[in-house]
């Protein structure tokens, strides 16, 4: 009995060793690429001087001096509201769309068709945002834009999109979804086709029709992936797609109350002053908020279903 126990213990130890051996390259990389530079976060509390470097530069007086500019402006409310509102909308709508597409693809017959559709819907993801900005201009421009041409043809009055605030939330949502749906559906698709077909057969035998099969087989199979992806997106809740919010409005600043996010504000504010400390402070805050949010939600998820938690 003791012999077998020892044998098991030994086997366990070897297994552990081998598994950790596998993780060495990744751990090395994480330490070098991510953790060593993390020490540089102190820049957020310093007056960074290029000659004195990170550790030689003087501490900022007061210590949080690099952070105040984010809050002193009355636009602070705007940019935080914009960032959070857009991100939450993007996460919710984006996941729903991606899941729907993945499930639809899964139920489709005809491999050739499937392949073509999959390739085509990926195309928007590959186009860089700067170019998307020009394409959007092709749609929204007052003189030659396709949208305005249609409005005029229907008897309406031209809309100057680039100086009107009201339409931009919708415009951003449409662009974001258009750009991402092909790409995000890939992950869900890969997971969906991994679901054991025997489960579907079993459900069909029990008399379930297609929507019921989706509800009872597909969605539970995707549960872990959905939770994981949403949790990871929450970590970036204070960040935003700079290209989308800065380039697409074609630098029209008159609408910035609805188009500026934190990243855009920081970029605009700091381009002329080249203040490393202040931009580091902005990143610091974005990270902390995302971190706290993820940790709290992860704790909740752990209580409900330990498997799906990130850590």
């Amino acid at each position: 009995m003791q012999k077998r126990k020892n044998k098991n213990k030994a086997a366990h130890r070897i297994m552990t060793l081998e598994l950790y051996l596998m993780m060495i390259p990744g751990l090395l990389y994480l330490i070098i690429n991510n953790y060593i530079p993390m020490g540089g976060l102190v820049i957020a509390f310093k007056q960074f001087n290029y000659q004195q470097g990170i550790f030689g530069s003087a501490w900022k007086d007061p210590l949080i001096g690099n952070f105040t500019y984010l809050f002193k402006t009355q636009d602070a409310v705007n940019i935080i509201r914009n960032t959070l509102a857009y991100n939450i909308t993007f996460i919710v709508l984006g996941q729903i769309l991606a899941i729907t597409i993945a499930i639809m693809l899964n139920f489709m017959r005809g491999t050739k068709n499937k392949k073509i559709y999959q390739t085509v819907i990926l195309i928007p993801y590959l186009i860089s945002m700067i170019v998307v900005a020009y394409i959007v201009f092709g749609f929204l421009s007052t003189e030659t834009g396709l949208v305005n041409k249609m409005i005029v043809a229907a008897g309406g009055k031209k809309i100057n999109f680039y100086s009107t605030k009201t339409y931009w939330p919708l415009i951003f949502i449409v662009i974001h979804l258009w750009k991402g749906f092909g790409y995000s559906s890939i992950i869900y698709y890969a997971t969906v086709i991994g679901i054991d077909s025997a489960l579907y057969e079993a459900a069909a035998i029990d008399g379930a029709n297609v929507p019921q099969q989706i509800w009872h087989v597909t969605l539970p199979g995707l549960k872990n992936t959905i939770i994981t992806l949403v949790l990871m997106s929450l970590g970036g809740i204070m960040y935003s797609d700079f290209g989308l919010f800065y380039q697409v409005p074609m630098r029209s600043t008159i609408i910035s109350d609805v188009t500026d996010t934190i990243d855009v504000f920081v970029f605009r504010a700091l381009t002329s002053m080249n203040d490393v400390g202040r931009s580091s402070a902005a990143g610091f805050i974005q990270s902390i908020v995302g971190f706290l949010l993820v940790v709290s939600v992860n704790l909740i998820v752990r209580k409900i279903d330990k498997e799906s938690a990130l850590f």
């Binding site: 990744g26 020490g39 993820v294």
Partner: peptide, 15 residues
Amino acid sequence: ILFFTMLFNGGLVPS
């Protein structure tokens, strides 16, 4: 340790 790196970034200059 892995996930933490997704959230916190030292920034461009230190890297």
